[in-house]
Design a protein around this nucleic acid. Sequence first.
DNA 1: GTTATTTATGTAACCAGTTACGTAATTGGT
DNA 2: ACCAATTACGTAACTGGTTACATAAATAAC
Lengths: 316, 316
Amino acid sequence: MQTLGCLSLGSRFKRLSDKMYKDVASIYQEQDIDLHPSFFPLFNLLLTKGPLTVTQAAALLNVTHPAISKIAHKMQAEKLLFKASDPSDERRFFLTLDEKAFQLQQAIAPILVEMRKYLDSIIDSQQFPILKALTEFERAYDERGLINPVLNALANHIDPDSLSIEHWHSDLKADFYRLNAAWLNKYFNGLFNDLDRQALETPESYYLARGGYIWFAKLEQKIVGCIALANHDHGRYEISKMGVDEQYQGRGIGRKLMLIALQKARQLHANSLYLETSSLLPRALTLYQHMGFSQVEHPKGVSDYQRSDIYMELKI
Amino acid sequence: MQTLGCLSLGSRFKRLSDKMYKDVASIYQEQDIDLHPSFFPLFNLLLTKGPLTVTQAAALLNVTHPAISKIAHKMQAEKLLFKASDPSDERRFFLTLDEKAFQLQQAIAPILVEMRKYLDSIIDSQQFPILKALTEFERAYDERGLINPVLNALANHIDPDSLSIEHWHSDLKADFYRLNAAWLNKYFNGLFNDLDRQALETPESYYLARGGYIWFAKLEQKIVGCIALANHDHGRYEISKMGVDEQYQGRGIGRKLMLIALQKARQLHANSLYLETSSLLPRALTLYQHMGFSQVEHPKGVSDYQRSDIYMELKI
DNA sequence: GTTATTTATGTAACCAGTTACGTAATTGGT
DNA sequence: ACCAATTACGTAACTGGTTACATAAATAAC
């Protein structure tokens, strides 16, 4: 625990939250308030915000809609809630608290008052203000996240001296072919199509001459990875032909190449970036997601590449 | 959210903890570390503390032993862990990390380093120190709890002027009978035994003359509740004959009576308090638990009261 | 105005925890 | 030294959430 320090923050938050939920349930129980603990997030929400649809409630409570759906069912069975249909949209209806719920509220109100008073008294008596600290931490965490900063730090931290990024040079043409042939062979039985062949055999005309770029990752004089940025029409760029030598994978080299390509795309005032990939490559998929890409339908309906079943886009 | 203030602390803790767990899982995934998220609390624990038994691990992680049992099974299936039998106790065995786990640790170590650095950098840049605030809040919460302070505040807050506690007076003898007959009739078909009859018909000799006490709760000139403290042998006291008028239940009157009785018992240097009750009275049971009573076996094996199936004790 | 897409909800199967209970080994009381 | 109580662990059934998928209504696209 001590040695973990800030790493145990997550489990400390969990422990406190569990305990507080249990305690509140216990207080309600002794006061003979017949409100199942799993009900009160929704119950509270509807009290404060008025009738809401299932998806609205789910979004506000940070849970999925089936969870709300189930709870609403149970609350309906206990006559705490009814569904008021929305005449303007027959799919949905408003979860509306019933008479019995308002009676319960009467019983609960003084408890909430006392709970607030007591918690405020604890908080006020402390040297370090938990509410302010929490708000500040939440904001920082939401703004900066955890995933990308840590992964970037990892990528930078690996061989900071020996890993360098190289621009295209005709001497590296064979490496470009080799690195891409490797994954095409491994995952797709070497199923090159015409586009692949053009790109790999004549990268100068396929990429560079059209305003595209190719970069290489060089680790101690060895070329271990590459990536290409293709210039399509009207500010649309495509990222493709990313490959990292198998024995150097998982060290953030792909991530570093992606960051270079993204940086250049921004410099070129690209307005969107896309890429095509496959569900057979889950690692790459996670990387793209962390970079902000999200999966959308293929704009042409079907890909030029038979292997590709995922189309991802990043609006800049 | 805003109006709830400190009341939403629980859900804010939950949200943060969920998010951090997911993010860590996501980082491991991109780094191609094959460690299921549900494994890592136990994994981490065993790394830092060395081999542990199932119950030890459960206690340290604040989960139940079946949870550890299941996770250990799965980790065993993935060859991350094996069970080393304890020669001195054939029931148990030490959950021991396997070779493969230590290889994983090598891969994870740099991630932990970067995570710690990054989180520390966030925390250090903040105006209000989250770690100190959290530690302080955890301590206050663990020491004072939430349940009893809030329930006591509620009890005090209800009619603080009109509710008073009265000592025994022969005029109140009929009330003592009435209040107890009410619940005996309601829950146990008026099944009085000889002891009940003595206690209710001759409370002076049954309680007071033996060094016991009887108190009444008086609400606006009406007697609405009572409790008795019986003096048994060698510092053992019994709490019994607690009754609150049905229409005034759920307002903390029972709790107030209990607190009076407990206070007196302490004053008398009682070393233990016990009471007998029934699983038919869940509300009362919760109250006793909140007061610190815990269920134990009946010392005589069987109760003098047919209705009683629960024996509870509080060591002072 | 028809057809495709998106949105709101429900249902099923699953998952990680829980409580309740059973069994076997150890400890303790007389 | 024995029998009762306790402890360590496992298993079963349940719970509150999840993801994946189905359906119907509303909206958008042509």
